[in-house]
Design a protein around this nucleic acid. Structure first.
Lengths: 200, 200, 200, 200
DNA sequence: ACATAATCGAGACGGTACGTCGAGTCTTCTG
DNA sequence: CAGAAGACTCGACGTACCGTCTCGATTATGT
């Protein structure tokens, strides 16, 4: 009888500290949340805020990009609960969620980076898309599909295009809105402008 | 008889070299066009590429942000000529122009910076808005207003919202389009999806 | 009748590996012999060359100094056999031995450290003196005392001073000799210069 | 008529600051004088104590060795004045000077490094020899030559060997003297032991 | 045979210093 | 005076070792 090798053999030596790993990611998110872009982030600052040696960071991530990617990846998108009563209400809820995020200091990271560092760090974005953006997009797609099924929306509506119109408009406003702050009823106004074109 | 003082008295000493100024701005745009963000830009690199001392840069601009702002400001927005035949055609032309820019190596700067460094360098953006963004927005507003006048669009259409929907959707696609490249007829498809909701 | 307790009761647990200890000392001497000073020696390099964990080193020695002291202490001074025919011959033999050592890769350690790290690591030296230097000094003292007894040297010669003059001169030459290499007959020349002043 | 090129054309740009250079060397000597060996010296500590950026050090010296060499080279050997009355008195004065140096905090550097780092940093020593050691050796050679001329010493005395015997003995005592401190009359005792062998 | 206990190699930990690079400022000479 | 050249201080970079600390595995002794 032979001893069964474990599937994932534990490597020799002291295992890496999960505590340190968490502290590093926390520190990174703190700094990103405080408005720092990927370029302004300094590994030294992260290490110092996390109470960790630089080596401990470099042992895990070979560059800033990968660290930030992993850090943001831990930010699961906490999707707002949808009533499911009407397409209009659910879309408003989703659009409003895009905005609310900017208020919360931690989830603000998502918007900060998505807006600013998107195409400069493509590898980062690819990872980030999967865990943070795609779920939100999928939620909105699902609402649209349901609207088509229930007959609230016209049958030949292209779901992807609908998604682009609604989200794109919302983002346009949050970034390049003309003057002053955004109106509180922005989500309602967007939906009410767009939805008639989608209705059956 | 008195000698007429010039209206703007020329200061004593050697005048600043316009050649150097142009070279600096050219070098800056080259680097930005090559994909560098504002943060990655190094004054030293600009000086070296422009064949100029760092002093000559700092004498004119007190920091990177102002230099980039001025550099981008020289990029006049070359608006596409609009036929004015139908609202649909003109909107398609305008949307297509947003995309075409990405192809040309120099005007690509506009999109690069607008997309990436928007909220990290607000002063930059403010300046940039005036010379590069606003003319394009105004052109589209004018098309929409004309559509309302001619009765192609419904009278109570909010012009600003229409602008946000069309531009926002286009930008959304250029940044977060699902897979692969963008379809060639994207502007047409956006306009055709959106316009019915705006029609009289 | 009771079982006799061993004088030094063996502590429980796995005993320290003598093999590891030897390997560590060998590695240390190798590195010192290759010209490394005490300061340049890295514990990590010693551990790696000895195929041993750093812990195994620090368990035995609390710092580099003690390790090097113990390592050098294992180097017994292999004194050259003395003919005993004449004081002159024996002194030449002893002086020559100081030089020969520099050729042998292992015993070169002795000179290396004695010359370079003497007063920076006083504790090291104290130990080292006892096992490596003192025997050589004693041998020379013995030769001088014998010379006094046999009448070859004058009766009021201070042995310690004689030792200092002979050894000091030899070392002076090996370290600060004017140009080029040392002459092969250096020991003879030193002795012949010094001895007349010591003769009866 | 042609303009005469200066022999050593001043290079373009801001000249290196002599003030910084002096501060660096002062700081280095301070640290060496405080008992640090070449290996323990840290460039960062030197820069900090000199109030200077690390770059400013690395611009001038490519490694520690060269810096220390230059620093020590500035320490001119302040030779003691010699009476010239008798060979014996002058030799005693010279030997005593070797010892006195150990007391003065700045000139202690000389002995510190000469004793400890001599053969580990050969390039350093070579430079150092020229400015610090050689003048002292030459002074002693001169005394010996004068003794030969005046007949105090025998005509066939090898000056170089005499130098080695006297200096070597003195150094031997200061480094490996048997127990306790050195006797106050050590120079006298050495000279009195050695000189008879040199006398005519 | 089996628990107890100190050791082993391996390697991660928080640090310090390394030598390099670029930032933005300053100082020199030349045009 | 503006120009280029290049020095200046400062601070972050990524690497190498420091001496300490876990780990699982090994190797003895004491029941």
């Amino acid at each position: 009888m032979t001893i069964q090798e474990p599937v994932t053999a534990r490597p020799a030596g002291r295992p890496r500290s999960e505590k340190a790993e968490r502290a590093i990611i926390e520190a990174t998110l703190d700094l990103v949340g405080d408005g720092m872009g990927v370029a302004e982030l300094s590994i030294e600052a992260i290490a110092s805020r996390a109470g960790v040696g630089k080596t401990t960071i470099y042992r895990r991530w070979s560059n800033k990009e990968e660290l930030v990617a992993d850090a943001l990846a831990t930010l699961k998108a906490p999707l707002p609960p949808l009533g499911g009563e009407s397409v209009r209400d659910d879309l408003i809820t989703l659009l409003r969620a895009m905005r609310e995020d900017k208020g919360r200091s931690r989830t603000r990271c998502v918007m900060n980076v998505m807006m600013s560092d998107a195409d400069r760090y493509p590898a980062l974005m690819e990872r980030f898309q999967k865990v943070a953006i795609e779920p939100r997009k999928e939620a909105m797609r699902e609402v649209l599909r349901r609207g088509i099924r229930t007959g609230e929306l016209r049958a030949d509506l292209e779901v992807e295009m609908g998604l682009a119109i609604l989200s794109g408009t919302m983002i346009w406003y949050t970034k390049w809105a003309p003057p002053g702050d955004l109106p509180a009823d922005l989500p309602e106004r967007i939906v009410d402008h767009v939805l008639p074109g989608f209705a059956a």
